[in-house]
Design a protein around this nucleic acid. Structure first.
Ligand SMILES: [Mn+2]
Ligand SMILES: [Mn+2]
Ligand SMILES: [Mn+2]
Ligand SMILES: [Mn+2]
Lengths: 220, 220
DNA sequence: TTTTAATTTTAGATTTGTCTAAATTTTATT
DNA sequence: AATAAAATTTAGACAAATCTAAAATTAAAA
């Protein structure tokens, strides 16, 4: 019921990867965790031993129910701490990830639930990602990438898919944040870049890479 | 400049012990950390290697300036988190120690300073212990043990020396907390127990062991 | 001042998590 | 189908932190 920081990091990363891909591979996990494939294999054996995932060597792996439950608790902690850092301690949304990466391993369940209450049971973190509740229930969102959005439809930024410091810094600079209302005015097939319009502001250009990682939902 | 959780625990424990005893012994530290003397010796070598303490084998040890500075930062983190837990998350003062024991190892200096500001730069933790400021400066308090207090002098509880769960639970039960105003009405030389009077309440008895660990300062 | 007891350190293991280099298995390409 | 390439696992090593049992040192008692 209680796992090391490293195990929690693995569980969380597997959870995210299998959400996108169903089955997870050793190399993908190693890349996500900035570690070596051999180290991943070592850890997989331990997690399998503890019955947290389904795994046959050379065949890929995925979390079972126990593993998912554990991963969701880590995600809950991570996102609540991020919310705390931004809303209570005035951190920028691009500064909180590293710190939350440490705070998420504090083990007290009571602490997390009290923190949740103190924050007013928020349902999304500063990057627009949903915060699981105490029982691990998720609000799953329907949102699309800005690059798939039809022209001239006003939407609201709801999440950022790639949360690297570089990406967040770029959006910060262009003054795009969660909740920003915008529409796509023009698409340039040459490089798939977009011209985006925000009310009361001059149009801004976004590259294809950036647009792909900006998730939006219907306005209101 | 950044230390493992275990090193931080050692530094902090040495700091506390040398405050009382000047020089610290292997056995004393092992007892304080609930570990084995051999493990302490192992760690001492590493801390000496990193020039955090003065140590010659068989002769005892004490922190040098670097070591003290490091220890004080850990103490600062510990006490700020305890304050946060009690004042913002409604924990009881007897429930926060274990959790703070984990939180104190989160490394971000910026986090600690922001937390400090968020809490309004408190100068004592929930147990009455002073919180070092960002530069490591301490407010040192002049306070005495309840067992040394003359009769009929009204004082205020300012700190609890022994912070075991058992001790804190006992005080909780007798409704004695930080800031409680009281005076000693009678001392019983037979077992050194005391009768203590708190305004608007019937007198309560405190054993010698308890009285020794209740620290008080002049009222107002 | 011997002898005994207590304290402290060393020697050697163990656990957890990581790594590199080599071997194995799977997948893709001729 | 044979071969090459990529992915994955194993073998063996290492660092950090801990432990037990034995040896060394210091302190206390006879
Ligand atoms: Mn983490
Ligand atoms: Mn986030
Ligand atoms: Mn600690
Ligand atoms: Mn305290």
């Amino acid at each position: 019921m209680k796992f090391s920081a490293s195990k929690e990091n693995h569980l969380k990363a597997i959870f995210h990867l299998q959400h996108e891909q169903g089955i997870v591979t050793t190399n993908a996990l190693a890349a996500a965790l900035q570690t070596r494939p051999a180290s991943v294999t070592d850890m997989l054996k331990k997690l399998k031993e503890q019955k947290l995932l389904i795994y046959q060597r050379y065949k890929g792996f995925r979390l079972n129910n126990e593993g998912k439950k554990a991963a969701i608790q880590v995600i809950r902690k991570h996102r609540l701490w991020e919310f705390f850092l931004v809303k209570k301690l005035q951190f920028g949304w691009d500064e909180v990830h590293e710190i939350a990466e440490e705070l998420e391993h504090i083990s007290s369940k009571k602490l997390v639930d009290r923190l949740d209450a103190f924050l007013g049971f928020p349902d999304t973190d500063p990057h627009g990602d949903p915060i699981p509740d105490s029982q691990g229930r998720f609000l799953q969102r329907r949102q699309i990438s800005l690059s798939e959005l039809p022209l001239n439809k006003v939407v609201q930024v709801s999440a950022i898919a790639s949360q690297t410091t570089e990406m967040l810094e770029l959006l910060q600079h262009k003054n795009i944040r969660l909740g920003t209302r915008l529409e796509v005015r023009k698409k340039f097939p040459f490089d798939n870049s977009l011209e985006v319009k925000i009310r009361n502001r001059p149009p801004v250009m976004l590259s294809a890479q950036v647009a792909k990682n900006v998730l939006v939902k219907d306005d209101e």
